[in-house]
Simulated scan of single mutants.
Amino acid sequence: MKTLLINLESDPQLEAQLLNQLDAQKGETELRRFPDDETYLRVLTDCKDRNVVIFCNLYQPDNKILRLLLLSYTLRQMGALKIGLITPYLAYMRQDKQFHDGECVSSRPFARLISESVDFMVTVDPHLHRYDSLDEIYSIPSRVVHAAPLIADWIRNNIRKPLLIGPDSESEQWVSSVAELAGAPFQVLNKIRRGDYDVEVTLPEVERWREHTPVLVDDIISSGRTMLETIAHLQHAGMPRATCIAVHGIFAADAYPQLEAVAEVITSRCIPHPSSQIEIAPAIAAATRELLEG
């Protein structure tokens, strides 16, 4: 019997791709709000003795997490065999350390909520800064789809003579991997962050790369300050118009129009956005099949 895929308020275009890649059946639900703003949820497709995969992109998670918990609970009550979660953007990974007394290290309770609700999870390049792997905080099997090969393919097919640039020393391993896969040179910035919108960067010597297209690569674009500061240095150095690539394009406030005015901006389809050009569905489907069959 085919796996059911239920889309919980997430990108319909990516849902269609996943249904095709997984050869899955679309699960139907009824979802609405009561007048008091509480959620009404009903699963309309029979899921007894069937595997069910929930596609719920946890970008802006506070609006979605309760509905995800309600849905997974209902699926278990209906007799689903195995319940999986596909979330291209995994929220609450960036708060991974307590910097001040009383701060919530939110990555841990969030991981517990998810682990208690589903049997496995597939995501794309979560923010693993102080954690070596998701297994440190998640107690369920998980698969991380790495975007580096997908980004490298896009660079090879679309940019002539690229020079990859990482935003800081922490990005060197990741950017060097993309550069190696793309067959391109790379440089890494020196960065000092004083606040969410106050970032200072310095570049290594770039004179030898004047004929190359600078490609700024990062896992997340949020405020965009690091990339904007870097682009200003590149322009001052007389380099060609830059391309900014990110796995996850959050684009807080007016980050996107500011970046688009000075560079080409490309992201993966993890978060739906006009900049999304790097396809992720085949890789996500392959990782999901591994967990379903395992």
Rank of each mutant, 00 (worst) to 15 (best):
D101M: 06
M93S: 11
S10F: 06
K64M: 05
I6A: 11
R225H: 12
A242V: 02
N7K: 04
I137H: 09
M121I: 07
V118P: 01
M78K: 14
K2V: 08
S139Q: 14
F34E: 02
Q98P: 06
A184H: 09
P141H: 05
A152E: 12
E293S: 12
I114K: 01
K2D: 14
L85N: 11
Y256F: 15
R210G: 08
M1D: 14
G195L: 07
I137E: 06
C270I: 00
P126V: 02
N7V: 08
Q13C: 09
F55Y: 15
F99S: 06
I6S: 10
R194M: 13
Q13D: 11
S177N: 14
R112Q: 08
Q21Y: 12
N7C: 10
N51P: 03
A91D: 08
H273A: 07
T39Y: 12
T288V: 11
T230W: 07
R42Y: 14
C56Y: 04
I192C: 14
V144E: 10
E200T: 15
C244H: 00
I159Q: 07
I280G: 02
G27Q: 03
L8S: 11
C104S: 12
S133H: 05
L189E: 06
S276V: 07
A237I: 00
I151L: 14
R94D: 00
A237Q: 08
R130C: 06
M93T: 11
R143L: 01
S177V: 09
V105Y: 05
V43R: 02
L150A: 14
G224T: 02
D254L: 07
L4W: 02
L14W: 04
L128G: 03
E229V: 08
Q173I: 12
I137Q: 09
S177C: 13
G27W: 05
Y89N: 01
L58C: 00
M93A: 12
G27I: 00
V43M: 11
P162C: 13
P185K: 09
L291E: 04
Y92Q: 08
P272N: 11
K161T: 09
L113M: 12
F55I: 06
I54K: 05
G102S: 09
G294Y: 03
P272C: 08
K82T: 12
L292T: 05
S268M: 10
A237C: 07
V199C: 12
L31W: 09
